[in-house]
Computed example of a mutant assay.
Amino acid sequence: MKIRIEPAGLEFAALPGQTVLRAAQDAGIDLPTSCRNGTCRTCMCRMHEGGAVRYAIEWPGLLREEKEEGWILPCVAEPLTDLRLHIPQAIDLFGD
């Protein structure tokens, strides 16, 4: 799956079963994170319409309303489709 981070325009791919956070790290992109298990909400970001994820844990630290509004937790979210995410704090560590 292809993932695009806005507003920086960073793009990377995620392998099947790989979380958004792990795919970003493998691509040299630093995203906000802390617990890495879906509870602290440090990585919480908004997914643009049309994207879909599944979670590596049964119930991540999001309210049902937040999920409906497009909020996700990249540390435990595995993409099911190409994604466009709004993460202003994302940093390209490779500087490409």
Rank of each mutant, 00 (worst) to 15 (best):
D82T: 11
P74K: 09
W59Y: 11
T19G: 07
P32Q: 04
L85N: 08
A8G: 14
L10W: 06
Y55V: 04
A14M: 02
N37Q: 13
C45F: 05
R64L: 13
E58L: 08
A56R: 12
P74S: 09
P88G: 08
L80D: 13
I29F: 05
V76T: 05
P32Y: 08
A52C: 06
D92P: 10
S34D: 13
G95V: 01
R36K: 15
D30W: 13
S34L: 14
E66I: 01
G38A: 07
P88Q: 07
K2Q: 15
A8N: 13
G28C: 06
T42L: 11
A52P: 01
I3D: 05
E68P: 00
T81D: 08
R46Q: 10
Q18L: 04
T42E: 13
E58Q: 12
G38H: 02
A13E: 11
L15T: 13
A24C: 03
L73K: 04
M47K: 09
V53Y: 03
L31R: 07
T39H: 14
I91P: 00
L10P: 02
F94C: 01
G51F: 00
D26M: 00
T39S: 15
C35G: 04
G51T: 06
G17W: 07
V76K: 07
L73P: 02
V76N: 09
G95Y: 00
R22L: 07
T39Y: 12
G50E: 09
T81I: 11
F12L: 01
N37M: 12
P7T: 12
R84F: 09
A8C: 13
E69C: 06
R54N: 09
K67P: 06
K67L: 15
F12K: 00
P7R: 14
A77C: 12
A77M: 09
K67E: 15
M1K: 14
A90V: 06
P74V: 04
W71R: 10
Q89R: 14
L83W: 04
A77K: 07
C43Y: 04
R46I: 04
E68L: 15
D82G: 14
Q89F: 08
P32F: 06
L10G: 04
Y55L: 03
Q18W: 04
L73N: 01
C75H: 01
A56Y: 01
S34A: 13
A77V: 10
R84D: 11
P79S: 11
E68K: 15
A52V: 02
L63N: 14
L73W: 05
T19M: 07
G38M: 03
I57E: 05
F12T: 00
G38D: 03
I72K: 01
G28E: 03
